[in-house]
Amino acid sequence: QEVDTIELTRQVKEKLAKNGICQRIFGEKVLGLSQGSVSDMLSRPKPWSKLTQKGREPFIRMQLWLNG
């Protein structure tokens, strides 16, 4: 299904801030990505339709983390 990447990243940033989790830790533990990649993804999320399967994976992980 289509994911609203802008809304998703907004919710993730909100939860990170609320729980005092830094992007570096979130990136390493949840997404398996560097802090730079995570920062870029959270500040400039690409539309779901423009992402490859590999590009979608971190957003799917974010969704699971939010719902977890």
Rank of each mutant, 00 (worst) to 15 (best):
Q1N: 02
Q1Y: 03
Q1C: 11
E2T: 10
E2P: 06
V3N: 03
V3W: 01
V3C: 02
V3A: 08
D4T: 05
D4Y: 02
D4F: 03
D4P: 04
T5D: 02
T5L: 08
T5E: 06
T5H: 08
T5W: 07
T5I: 07
T5C: 05
I6P: 06
I6H: 13
I6A: 15
E7L: 15
T9A: 14
T9C: 10
T9R: 06
T9M: 02
T9P: 04
R10V: 08
Q11V: 04
Q11M: 14
Q11Y: 06
Q11K: 15
Q11T: 08
Q11S: 08
Q11H: 09
V12Q: 08
V12D: 11
V12H: 08
V12S: 10
V12K: 07
V12N: 04
V12C: 02
V12P: 13
K13L: 03
K13N: 09
K13T: 08
K13G: 02
E14K: 09
E14Y: 02
K15P: 11
K15D: 01
K15I: 10
K15T: 06
K15W: 05
K15Y: 15
L16G: 12
L16N: 06
L16T: 14
L16I: 06
L16E: 12
A17M: 07
A17P: 09
A17I: 12
A17N: 09
A17Y: 06
A17L: 08
A17S: 08
K18V: 07
K18D: 02
K18C: 04
K18H: 02
K18T: 10
K18G: 05
N19L: 15
N19F: 15
N19Y: 03
N19A: 12
N19W: 05
N19C: 13
G20F: 05
G20H: 05
G20S: 09
I21T: 06
I21D: 01
I21R: 02
I21F: 09
I21P: 03
I21N: 04
C22N: 06
C22D: 12
C22M: 11
C22Q: 05
C22L: 10
Q23R: 12
Q23H: 09
Q23S: 12
Q23G: 04
R24S: 08
R24I: 04
R24E: 15
I25G: 05
I25N: 11
I25T: 15
I25V: 13
I25A: 13
I25R: 11
I25M: 14
F26Y: 01
F26R: 01
F26I: 02
G27Q: 03
E28F: 06
E28K: 10
E28A: 12
E28P: 08
E28C: 04
E28D: 04
E28I: 04
K29F: 01
K29N: 15
K29M: 05
K29R: 11
K29S: 09
K29H: 09
V30A: 05
V30L: 02
V30I: 13
V30Y: 12
L31V: 05
L31D: 02
G32W: 03
G32P: 06
G32E: 02
G32I: 01
L33P: 02
L33M: 12
L33Q: 05
L33I: 15
L33Y: 05
L33C: 06
S34G: 08
S34R: 14
S34K: 14
Q35L: 13
Q35K: 12
Q35H: 12
Q35R: 14
Q35G: 13
Q35D: 15
Q35V: 13
Q35Y: 13
Q35C: 11
G36E: 15
G36H: 15
G36A: 15
G36C: 12
G36K: 12
G36Y: 05
S37M: 09
S37E: 14
S37T: 10
S37Y: 07
S37L: 15
S37A: 15
V38N: 03
V38T: 15
V38M: 08
V38I: 12
V38S: 10
S39K: 14
S39T: 13
S39L: 10
S39M: 13
S39R: 13
D40P: 10
D40Q: 10
D40C: 06
D40T: 09
D40A: 07
M41S: 04
M41K: 10
M41G: 05
M41H: 04
M41F: 13
M41W: 14
L42Y: 02
L42Q: 03
L42N: 02
L42T: 02
L42M: 06
L42P: 09
L42D: 02
S43Y: 07
S43L: 08
S43V: 11
S43R: 09
R44P: 03
R44T: 13
R44V: 07
R44F: 12
R44H: 09
P45K: 07
P45Q: 02
P45H: 09
P45E: 01
P45T: 05
P45Y: 04
P45L: 06
K46I: 07
K46Q: 12
K46E: 13
K46H: 07
K46C: 03
K46S: 13
P47M: 09
P47D: 07
P47Q: 11
W48A: 00
W48D: 00
W48H: 00
W48F: 03
S49D: 05
S49G: 08
S49V: 07
S49A: 11
S49Q: 07
S49P: 05
S49C: 05
K50H: 07
K50W: 05
K50C: 11
L51V: 02
L51K: 00
L51S: 00
L51E: 00
L51P: 00
T52S: 15
T52C: 09
T52V: 12
T52W: 14
Q53G: 08
Q53P: 14
Q53S: 12
Q53V: 10
K54V: 03
K54A: 13
K54C: 03
K54F: 06
K54E: 15
K54W: 03
K54Q: 09
K54G: 05
G55K: 07
G55H: 08
G55S: 11
G55T: 07
G55F: 14
R56E: 00
R56S: 01
R56K: 12
E57R: 05
E57G: 09
E57C: 01
E57T: 08
E57L: 06
E57M: 06
P58E: 11
P58Y: 10
P58S: 10
P58C: 15
P58V: 13
P58Q: 12
P58L: 15
F59Y: 13
F59R: 01
F59T: 01
F59Q: 00
F59L: 03
F59W: 09
F59S: 00
I60E: 08
I60L: 13
I60T: 13
I60S: 08
I60Q: 08
R61S: 02
R61P: 00
M62K: 00
M62Q: 00
M62H: 00
M62W: 03
M62G: 01
M62F: 13
Q63F: 05
Q63H: 14
Q63T: 07
Q63D: 02
L64E: 15
L64W: 06
W65C: 01
W65Q: 00
W65M: 01
W65R: 00
W65S: 00
W65T: 00
W65E: 00
L66F: 05
L66W: 03
L66Q: 00
N67T: 12
N67G: 12
N67P: 01
N67I: 03
G68S: 05
G68M: 10
G68T: 02
